[in-house]
Nucleic acid binder design. Sequence first.
RNA 1: GCUCUCGUAGUUCAAUGGAUAGAAUUCAAGUUUGCGGUACUUGCGAUGCAGGUUCGAUUCCUGCCGAGAGCACCA
Length: 568
Amino acid sequence: MNKRSISEELREIVIGSLLFLGLENVKNIPFSLDQPDDVSYGEFATNVALVVSKILKLSPRECAEKLVSYINNNKGEIISNLEIAGAGFINFFVTDKAKGIAIESVATQETKLDFLSGQTVLCEYTDPNPFKLFHIGHTVSNTVGESLSRIYEMAGAKVVRVCYQGDLGMHVATTMWGVEKMEDEIPKESATLREKVSFLGKAYAYGMKTLADKPKIKEEIQSINKHLFEGKEHEMYEKGKKWSLDYFKTVYEKLGTAFDYFIMESEVSEKGKKIVMENTPKVFEQSDGAYVYKGEKVGLHTRVFINGEGFPTYEAKELGNCERKKELVKNHDISVVVTAHEVDEYFKVVISALKEIDEDYANKLVHISHGMLRLPEGKMSSRTGNIIPAEDLIDEVKERIKDRLEKSDVVDKEKLANDIAVGAIKFSILRQAIGRDIIFDIDKSISFEGDSGPYLQYTHARIVQLLKKAEEENIKSKYINGLTEKSLERKLLIFRDVLEKTYQDMGPQHVVNYLLSLAHEFNSMYARQVIVDKNDPNSSHYVLLAQAVGSILKQGLNTLGIVAPEKM
RNA sequence: GCUCUCGUAGUUCAAUGGAUAGAAUUCAAGUUUGCGGUACUUGCGAUGCAGGUUCGAUUCCUGCCGAGAGCACCA
């Protein structure tokens, strides 16, 4: 069985034609070979004639004619017909034989890439802060990071998932200050995790609000910070930290993420400070009692790494974090960090400083930032208390789909409801390009009409049930030449191409769009064509198509971190 | 003020420099004597403005207008 995709084989044929015309360095000629939107343009098309026309000093159409006359003699068993169209595009029509082989392959085998085989990728994401709520912004980071992790895995890498949690710093001290003031509201041990965690959130909000009104309490907070930073005993701190971390575990489980390592800020703080001290004055310099990095020398801005009180800031801790990662996962090849894009500028400074300290590791770093999740009214801010906890959102969505599951005979309805709710939320995050802000309208994101996670899940479940029925009726899947489900079949040929593009762009939205178009095509066929029919000899063909679509939906959803239920 | 990101149907989003700019939603009109109607079919509707590069620009460059984020001891 040939593992290459049809587009790869066509690409080779095109390169052959370029060599035939006497061109050099053909591997570096940037021509495209992809599937046109319009069915009448064939299964694949290339702009190669437009690209080389200047080199050959001929018009694009003349080039196309020369190339086509060569390719016509080298069609192999893959090309049935060729056309020159438009400005000089060459359209390829693929033989039934090649289509049959490709579709049977995608229906029965997993599609894997080998760009990164043998490599290890460390991926850090989610990064919620103990003592603060796990809100929908963390859900974005988690969704993006989990999807990127799976894309790296799909590309052949071994992925190590890491979560960095900020258990030290002014936000923690502010919370502890609030806790002290709200002493009589501290939940009992018998309270639920959510009650405990939301108390911490309230304490933080109270601390922030008071700080805004009476700036002089900052000294009190700083003293708490110092106390904690020095590792001194603090009962509520230990208690609260455990509450938070236990609570986070329940959220990760709902979201479908299993981290390999957790890194605490408290364990990288000293490391970071030490790195900064050791590299002063080589990399950092002292200024107003603080240790800073002068980013201006590389077109950035100055940032404080150790503040006047002697505490490492986010920037220094990040250096310690890198050090910790090197210890945890020896010799990893790529180190991915997923954050919100509001830290983009700081991160550039951190990377620039790291370059001067450990250039080798700095070059392995890939910073991918996602947009902020905004409510239609405006920015979501934990400081005003106007935040949506991730769990509230999941519960809200679950609540609204429960009615639909009433009639379902699925055994574990709770898990199914969770998978659908989380799928709906993840879908609404991954459908757009990573990096742009997400306008999160609750009503729209949980609507199951039209393009949505549940739509894809539903189509998958329906296919699984269809295939079950086909098996009961003993209908074997098989490609039959000459049947017309052209627009669906051609889409089945490009799954590998879509995955390649997804990896190259680190763009899960390509998978989303592809799965949607595939599901639309399938549902369209489903509406007009009986799939499983033991009296129809062509049924084998439709069952094969269903099998292929089902297989791709499952793999594609997996790449997005969305569960594909077999029954809904 | 400086830096970065971004302006696409009424709305929310797509589109390695390529062919007639795709979806969804809203609105209007339809589809079931059939394996799951969370479905399917049809229609209305968009590249902020002005230049430039190119055979070809939503995409690249310049200017303007508009939005968001960041700009020294918070993360």
